[in-house]
Nucleic acid binder design. Sequence first.
DNA 1: CAAGATACGTCAGCCTTGTTGACACTCCAA
DNA 2: TTGGAGTGTCAACAAGGCTGACGTATCTTG
Lengths: 169, 169
Amino acid sequence: MAERPGPQGGHGLLYLTDEQLRKGIEAMFFAYRGFTAAPDRILDEQDYGRAHHRALHFIQRSPGTTVGNLLDILGVTKQSLNRVLRRLMEDGLVEARVGREDRRERHLHLTEKGVALERALSEAQRDRMRAAYRAAGPQAVQGFRQVLEAMMDPEMRRQFDGDAKAGGR
Amino acid sequence: MAERPGPQGGHGLLYLTDEQLRKGIEAMFFAYRGFTAAPDRILDEQDYGRAHHRALHFIQRSPGTTVGNLLDILGVTKQSLNRVLRRLMEDGLVEARVGREDRRERHLHLTEKGVALERALSEAQRDRMRAAYRAAGPQAVQGFRQVLEAMMDPEMRRQFDGDAKAGGR
DNA sequence: CAAGATACGTCAGCCTTGTTGACACTCCAA
DNA sequence: TTGGAGTGTCAACAAGGCTGACGTATCTTG
């Protein structure tokens, strides 16, 4: 990163010029593309899209989560999510179990097949991220995470921080 | 994958557990949402979408850029881009001037009106980013940028690094 | 100059994934 | 037992990706 006097250069960042911010904006744009490229390729082969990936990811993360729960996390309408879930269930990747406490709820789980695909997807993405982390170094990763966290909506930040295993059931 | 003590811990990062990487992946997801939320609201009011924003952004960044150039950067098909550009030109936000050297080319420029919208959009986004930068601190910003850059496709990284004012080709 | 290559625009049609509207099932409380 | 709240589903539509096929200027080259 032998650019300019370095954003680190001692002053620089206190000003945060529009140009520096613009660079940051573009960095997010290009990086996000790189970040999704690998899983996108896999998804494409199986005629799935990013929406399916997101669903698989968050079900994997919190097995037994409900549809409503997923809606909150993903921030889409239930109709939109439903289409994706239906397909995943038809294809035998996801299973919906009627809630025992509250029979209105559907608790979502990955099947073996679902686990396999999710695994392939996340592995591709982790590889990419691992490579980026390695290239940038631990120090940088720390900062990366801090800025990302600060950029989230407060509500999402709670989702993100407090996760652990909120799945529930 | 038992939870490690703290991703924040100071060491830890040399291991890069799957769990840490998963967290990074989710952080990208949530942060990108936050990152696009503000401009999305503005765009919505005027019945534009993210596609229009991207076009405006990159025309602003390199005034006089050609259609083909934009295609490379955005990574979409010309039919798709054309739909967006046509609308922006109809609405008087973007102007296409026939190339002087090569009259086949169309050089794109923002009109006053286009500049105004682009400004509003990027200001909203810069505000967000500035806030995140401030919250995280200069050290973190440095790392943030390093990781993002490492995450891009090499090709995009060239776009990103070598910019300055690459305008024409 | 004729022929091919390039840059751009456009028509037609498809797909994914967002949206709203309407509705059905389940639970709970009055 | 009935109405409201929570949840899930179906139908229909829109934005914005995509491919394929052409048309039209405009270079460029044999």
